[in-house]
Amino acid sequence: MNDTGDITDVSEANAARIYDHFLGGAHNFAADRAVAAVLLERHPDVAEIARANRDFLGETVRWCLAHGIRQFLDLGSGIPTVGNVHEIVGPDCRVAYVDAEPVAVAYARDILVDVGHATVTHADLCDVDAVLAAPGVRTLLDLAEPIAVLAVAVLHSVPEDPRRVVDAYRAHLAPGSAIVISHGSDDQDDPVVAARIRDIRDAMAGSASPLTPRSRVEIRDVLHDLDPVAPGLVDVADWPAPGRRPRSGIYGLVALLPPVE
């Protein structure tokens, strides 16, 4: 494996590896599976919810492709093994993965060793200048051309104001770029779904990646002056149209930066 820092301490559960477990991946450890087991005991459909969020990622990436975007900056990408962006978009596009979790980055670098159109960078997504200056981002992506910034199931792991973080990326994006967000929330019409999100928050409280669910208003405010494309801010199971998956408790939205007038 490549050197990404100390990857020997896997005694704390991590959201990226729990997610990998729910998606059927193999890059997770006993601590991750223990938390996953607790969540599955309380909410047997939680793995289906993880898959709904992963489907949202795939749907939005394909939407970006249909709108002419060929560059992708995947923040908090985790372990790109199941439904990953670089395989969806193909070799004619460029994908820069970014994650702060050393184990995820080490595995990702092994997976991507022979993939010429994708890189992985070990960095904190909140340090926007460091992310954009990293060789794996700076040499791969052309900031003068449209880029899709993917912040899928990651901003609820950011304790600070997510709008500030997203605004910092927006300042570097060319017109026609896209921002894709999904975010857990206990602001739900269904009390069962709200309780599930609070249970997940509580289960992750002692982990390496505690969660901060936010309200619908707070999530929408991350994009403030940008209007989401249809269908707007909806449960990821309903993007781009209502499906048959259970309510996930995760809201998703996509916005395009307008062209220069």
Rank of each mutant, 00 (worst) to 15 (best):
S182Y: 01
T121H: 03
D142H: 11
I7A: 09
V165P: 00
P175Y: 06
R163K: 14
D55L: 14
D74A: 04
D129S: 12
A255K: 12
D235K: 11
I69E: 05
A26S: 15
G83L: 01
A237P: 05
A118P: 09
R109Q: 11
R220N: 12
A15E: 04
F56M: 08
V236L: 10
A100K: 03
T212K: 05
S77T: 05
A230T: 13
V61F: 02
V260T: 15
Y169K: 07
P240Y: 05
D189A: 14
R138K: 13
G68M: 11
R245F: 08
A134H: 04
D227G: 02
I88F: 03
L132Q: 10
V254W: 06
G76N: 00
L65R: 13
G78K: 01
V105H: 02
A34T: 14
R214H: 05
V234G: 13
A144C: 06
V154E: 01
H117M: 06
P159F: 02
D167R: 14
H27T: 13
L125Q: 02
M1S: 14
A100D: 06
P210N: 00
A171L: 07
G78Y: 00
S248H: 08
V98W: 00
D238W: 06
A50D: 09
A34G: 11
T119E: 01
A230Q: 14
S11R: 15
R245W: 10
V254T: 15
R198W: 02
G116F: 03
I197H: 06
D110A: 07
P146G: 09
A230E: 14
P242N: 14
I181D: 07
R244P: 03
V234Y: 12
Y251S: 13
H183L: 02
D45A: 09
T60K: 04
A148K: 09
T139A: 15
D55E: 12
H43E: 12
A96V: 06
P146W: 05
R62G: 05
A230M: 10
F56N: 09
H43D: 07
P159L: 00
D142I: 06
T121N: 04
P91D: 14
R70E: 15
D92R: 13
P191S: 04
A66C: 01
D190W: 00
V95H: 11
T4G: 03
S11D: 09
P159T: 00
I111S: 08
